[in-house]
Amino acid sequence: MTATSTPVFDLREVSFEYGHGVVALRAVSFSVQRGERLALLGANGSGKSTLLKIMAGLAAPTGGAISAFGAPLAADLLRDTAAAHEFRRRVGIVFQSADAQLFTPTVRDEIAFGPLHLELPRDQVLARVEDTLRMLGLDDLAERAPYNLSGGEKKKVALAAVLSINPEVLMFDEPAAGLDPRTQQWLLELLARLHGAGKTIIIATHRLDELGRIADRALILAEDHTVAAVGPVAELLADRGLLLAANLIHEHAHYHGEVLHSHPHGHVDDEALEHGEPLPHEHDHGAPVPEGNGAPVPDDHSGL
């Protein structure tokens, strides 16, 4: 990571409230350094997606201040076409729902959309489209309608559509959601290559598996929409109390014979915990199973 004095993003006491009084973020403060890999962790509804939208200049905070690349990121600024183009060239976001992102007639048009609207020279746009198609193995789908693709293919096209802009900062909202294991692995490798190329990567997720491979540092949003913690991934993963309070792991109950047994349980792989403490099974032996209370829940540690 190449940290510089000017952070890519600097948020000070950022809050966001939806029009009908629903709070999404409360006084969130943190910085993102150039070349960093940051994970935004939090339970469903904790405000991760809203935070990403604010950082992507798609929503304006209702309180506090945010600066990007050393300049205030204000709604007024992005109304200016030149400033908006400059910012969009530097920051790309891949949405959680690929369906919302893909509605040009063909995959090729979709990948060309960003560079074209950011006014890159036509030759460069065409070259980028071809390169991106090839890099992501989408050549065969180039003339297909994004609407008719599978979930994994749509996600790849959504990613390709942002990569073709070649932004310095890449933001992902739940990138692995709905992907099969092979595509998840492919995505992890791609993220590693992008990070190796110096990109700043910000990923919003509520999953802890593979976290050590996608982020160096993490910010945990609590369920009350405040920042619960910011720090190195390994340190945060070792804090079971913090993860439980943020609803990132849960008390997992299962049976040994007729004895109820529970322990904190999250979806954390060994590599993610390489530098931290693995989550130990905390044996809370509970009451015997009452008769006729249904079949025991299998201790299945596969991903949710």
């Binding site: 992507a56 183009h85 960003g114 609207h117 950011l118």
Partner: peptide, 12 residues
């Protein structure tokens, strides 16, 4: 969402 996805990729 749709509008955000367009704006995020430079649509003005």
């Amino acid at each position: 969402e749709v509008y955000g996805a367009m704006v995020a990729r430079g649509y003005v």
